[in-house]
Design a protein around this nucleic acid. Sequence first.
DNA 1: CGATGGCA
DNA 2: TGCCATCGG
Length: 328
Amino acid sequence: MGVKFKDIVSSEEIRFEDLNGKVVALDAANVIYQFLSSIRQLDGTPLKDQNGRVTSHFSGILYRTSSLVEKGMKPVYVFDGRSSALKKETQQKRKEIKEESERRWKEALEEGRLDDARKFAVRSSRMSPEIVEGSKKLLKLMGIPYIQAKGEGEAQASYMVERGDAWCVASQDYDCILFGASRMVKNLTISGGQASPELIQLNKILKNLDVTRQQLVDLAIMVGTDFNQGIKGIGAKKGLKLIKKHGDIYHALEHLDVELDVDPDILRDMFLNHEVESHYQLKWQKANPEEIVEFLCREHDFSEDRVLTAVDKLKKLETTQSSLEQWF
DNA sequence: CGATGGCA
DNA sequence: TGCCATCGG
């Protein structure tokens, strides 16, 4: 998932207080997928309502969002739009892994191997249109804005940081730095325990590695992204050396005597000139406790006490005003 | 994952 | 109060 840059990007640990008052653009797909993967029982079964509909993502969105608000952040969720045809191969591969994982989950369950069951269940997580629509509905009732991207959500979120409408992108993937996000935050989890939030700044990465953003994109293309396979045997470190030695991907490829499956120019264009939605408005509104209870408790069997406690935390937003609000 | 409750 | 196991849906 995402470009494998872990070995070359530096990050700094931050505290939640550092994000007080900041607009945080959350990559919705990334966040929801995390919830679907991890909010499960020991045997891997996700949370479900009485009708058997998965509710893990509702739990995650409700509790994490309300906690972020309580800590002073202004969250905005960014949903994926159409995905590039270039992503087809990755999507097909993921689909196969998920199907295989689901099969092995059931198999492990029958044989009583609980650890394996959970492991494969996590890998089998899938985000259906129903899950996306339900998530949007919940956010709306909570008064939390969401943006529908035209293309990749990461690209849209990065654009919002570039415009100054958001302070950072929150994601676990490094893709947003390729899309030009000047700041991204990893591990924006509440009970992080070990993993506290990490701030990753594009200009610091470029300075540390001594490359341009274009070169960083070229490097990603060599290493492989969700949109292309990359070159076998080339990881972030080796690729970085090659890009620095030869200047760009075309010259590096000449010296390696290999060809890519996709024209680098097409991928460069995707990362550097991604189609985005520029007409949007960020507005945090009062939560609607009655309708949230109707939706989560009546329709999806959540506990009213727990839901109302979380919803109460959203009141913090009513006292703060978006700096943007003055413009509208 | 995040909330909750029991226990020191 | 803080830590940890387990519950949530």
